[in-house]
Simulated scan of single mutants.
Amino acid sequence: MIPKNSFPTALRTLRKSRGLSQEAFSEVSSRTYMSSLERGLKNPTLSKVDELCEVMEVHPLTLLALAYGLDAKGADKVLARVQRELAAVQDGQDA
């Protein structure tokens, strides 16, 4: 289970690491909405996550791995697990 504050923290961390202000998302979200996301008051849809990640020029899985991993090191573990699970899906399709 993902801790309640990890998506907001991951979003803020990633946004700041890209040198972006909340206003940089004005074509896809208002500053108020961004603030609400970063404070954990609202939850974005998958399509909104995709739009936000386009502004940050990262793949949506980068944001989600950071949220689930809680930091960059933990994100590596999350991505390794995803790779194993995808390989198992592929192996199941090949059988």
Results as ranks from 00 to 15, higher is better:
M1D: 04
I2D: 09
P3N: 05
P3D: 01
K4P: 03
N5R: 04
S6N: 12
S6M: 11
S6K: 08
F7P: 07
F7Q: 09
P8S: 06
T9S: 15
A10P: 07
A10F: 01
L11V: 09
L11C: 11
R12D: 10
T13N: 14
L14T: 14
R15Q: 10
R15T: 01
R15L: 11
S17I: 11
S17L: 03
S17G: 08
G19P: 01
L20K: 14
L20N: 04
L20M: 15
S21H: 07
S21T: 15
Q22P: 00
E23L: 08
A24L: 13
A24S: 13
A24T: 10
F25W: 03
S26W: 01
S26V: 02
S26D: 05
E27L: 07
V28W: 06
S29M: 12
R31F: 04
T32K: 12
T32H: 02
T32M: 04
Y33S: 10
Y33D: 03
M34Y: 06
M34F: 10
S35L: 02
S36H: 12
S36T: 14
L37Q: 00
L37P: 13
L37R: 04
E38M: 00
E38N: 06
R39S: 14
R39Q: 15
R39P: 07
L41K: 06
L41M: 11
N43Y: 06
P44E: 09
T45H: 10
L46M: 08
L46W: 05
L46H: 03
L46D: 10
L46C: 02
S47M: 08
S47N: 08
S47H: 11
K48C: 00
K48D: 13
V49F: 00
V49C: 00
V49I: 15
E51R: 13
E51M: 06
E51Y: 10
L52R: 15
L52H: 05
L52A: 12
C53V: 09
E54W: 01
E54P: 12
V55C: 08
V55G: 01
M56G: 01
M56S: 09
E57N: 13
V58A: 11
V58L: 08
H59I: 05
H59N: 04
P60R: 02
P60T: 02
L61I: 01
L61M: 13
L63T: 12
L63Q: 12
L63R: 09
L64I: 08
L66V: 02
A67D: 10
A67Y: 00
A67F: 05
A67V: 03
Y68A: 06
Y68N: 08
L70F: 02
A72R: 02
K73N: 15
K73D: 11
K73V: 12
G74L: 10
K77P: 01
K77A: 02
K77H: 07
V78Q: 01
A80D: 06
R81F: 02
V82W: 09
V82D: 03
Q83R: 13
R84T: 08
R84I: 05
E85I: 04
L86C: 13
L86M: 11
A87S: 09
A87E: 12
Q90E: 12
D91Q: 15
D91K: 15
D91I: 15
D91N: 15
G92K: 03
D94G: 08
D94Q: 10
A95P: 11
A95Y: 14
A95T: 04
